[in-house]
Design a protein around this nucleic acid. Structure first.
Lengths: 321, 321
DNA sequence: TTGTAGGCGTTATCAT
DNA sequence: ATGATAACGCCTACAA
């Protein structure tokens, strides 16, 4: 900037104004433009940020950026963020509370303009760090009602109910459920949703618990087949469902004739399987998009009061049920 | 900082020194620490960047951050980057040349300390922007030999040869190939690799071309089945392979008895399918990790001369062949 | 060890 | 319309 101004024979202030399109006489504009061109001037993003107090960066923090659900969210978020002229910073937290709260605290450094976080386990430390954060935070996932933080959630309890109702109406009675860890937010919600739906239908529950992963689904399904084969299996996510499907096919069980299968999250995996897997969409992309929009709105107007958005679950029936 | 210094009754310089562990008398240290604590001081990342001329941000630019191959790379890169105390900025370019060169040019703004880019099509504009970039760039993918830019590549031509040899040694003769667009770097390399390997074995080639996607694989496989069914199919990536597998199973073709199948990239998809798909690993995670390491090294020492790393392909045989 | 002062690159304010 | 000047928040010679 200094060099440009010198070369153009004007003050730094004038050069800055011209380069930002804030007026200037025709001849000044011409001189500055030419000078900038010849010295190959490019503005410095950091200095601009220091002045503007914005980085035009948005952070997204999740346990594992390779998990299909988070990939879908990230894709949606990236698209909204990029469209607004900002960029996305991704954090893989490994689901560790310490990591996540550290990230939340680092928000105070203003290295980004805001953060979208989807904690798989929610602790008091999380909540404390969020409400204390001077930079806007949007949470994807459940949050205690009294916490004043923008929040996008779905209703996985209802989602499970959708799956149970669907299977029951198809004549299934022995509906098992393969869940993820119960001490996680999604695990707990799915557990209670499943139990309640089964109770409502007067059916007995049958639950296997493991990680939210392919391998766990396979192992759990093998266990289910080993003792009193169910006539339907609901899985807490599609990764588990694909694993379960694998176990069923290996065992020569016909899907859906012998055992119906329903997954959750409705990721690409569900339609890429054979047979294609029915799945309860929890609107991952929609939640990501919404979260990004909420965050951008709040950045524009920090005075906004906390909002909660609900993305309703939706059952997508395919060949497996 | 100003406030902390005032409260502690010392100069701003002293406060800064203490907070950075650059000495100070025991009592000064105590006073400053306490002052910082009581006012809840947190350093401002932007101001620090302006001073240090570093953002501690690394960019990763790819066509689609949802593609399993890029997800694997991103995961590996994120891990290396995070370990070094930096963070990852992701860009989805949609494969558009304009977008990618714009990104490369924006590097001059120094909004990140360096960029890893994996262009699916490589133009002169790309190369020009890379060599002109004042910030370090590492390319994942092919690059003309004379271009002095750090580069991590694999050898997909040899990768294809691995697959062909394997299938031939299994007695297959009519080996078809489903490729992605020929005007992409990977598409072109795979095409020539396949042709050469088939020629070497005295076999006739049979090629279908589509996108690097599931749906394209399905459609292409249907076409192959429609006219002179092959006894083996090689797919340019796992997404295509899963689509092809789907088409084969739907048609009642037994895999691998009737038609053997080999994918490329060796992503999770390959082992999650049933039957599990053989796949040529192109070391996506390894390439990502290496690229990140190269970039960090160059950031530390910009005088380094351009390096090229080669990650050799490796055939992973599973049930489908 | 401590404080003063200058600078990192921009933008905005305020006279002129 | 223009230029001088003061921020933005931090760090670091340099001199005391």
């Amino acid at each position: 900037m200094h060099t440009v101004a010198a070369l153009a024979g004007v003050s730094i202030a004038s050069a800055s104004r011209v380069l930002n399109g804030h007026g200037g006489s025709p001849e000044t504009v011409a001189k500055v433009r030419e000078a900038a061109e010849t010295v190959g001037y490019v503005p410095n993003a950091i200095a601009r940020s220091l002045q503007s107090q914005r980085t035009d960066l948005i952070a997204f923090a999740v346990e594992d950026i390779g998990n299909p659900v988070y990939v879908e969210m990230m894709r949606a978020i990236e698209s909204v963020v990029a469209e607004s002229g900002r960029q996305l910073v991704v954090h893989a937290t490994g689901g560790q509370v310490g990591q996540e709260t550290a990230l939340l605290k680092r928000l105070a450094h203003r290295y980004v303009d805001g953060m979208i976080i989807s904690p798989i386990r929610l602790t008091d430390a999380h909540v404390a760090a969020m409400v204390a954060s001077p930079a806007p935070v949007v949470v994807i996932g459940q949050l205690p009602d009294e916490v004043q933080v923008d929040n996008v959630r779905t209703d996985s309890r209802t989602g499970i109910a959708l799956a149970v109702d669907h299977l029951v109406s198809g004549g299934r009675k022995r509906i098992a459920f393969i869940n993820g860890p119960l001490d996680t937010v999604p695990g707990a919600a799915r557990d209670s949703g499943y139990r309640e739906a089964m109770r409502r239908h007067g059916l007995e529950h049958r639950i296997e618990v493991g990680e939210f992963q392919y391998e766990a689904g396979r192992v759990a399904a093998e266990r289910l087949l080993g003792s009193g084969q169910p006539d339907a299996i609901i899985c807490a996510n599609d990764l588990i469902a694909v694993g379960a499907l694998h176990a069923l096919l290996v065992a020569g069980v016909r899907v859906p004739q012998d055992v119906a299968l329903v997954g959750m999250d409705d990721t690409e995996l569900a339609r890429m399987s054979y047979p294609q897997i029915s799945s309860v969409s929890l609107g991952s992309a929609a939640r990501g998009r919404l979260a990004a929009q909420l965050l951008l709105e709040r950045i524009k107007d920090p005075a906004l009061k906390a909002r909660r958005e609900l993305v309703p679950p939706q059952l997508v029936v395919r060949e497996s049920s």
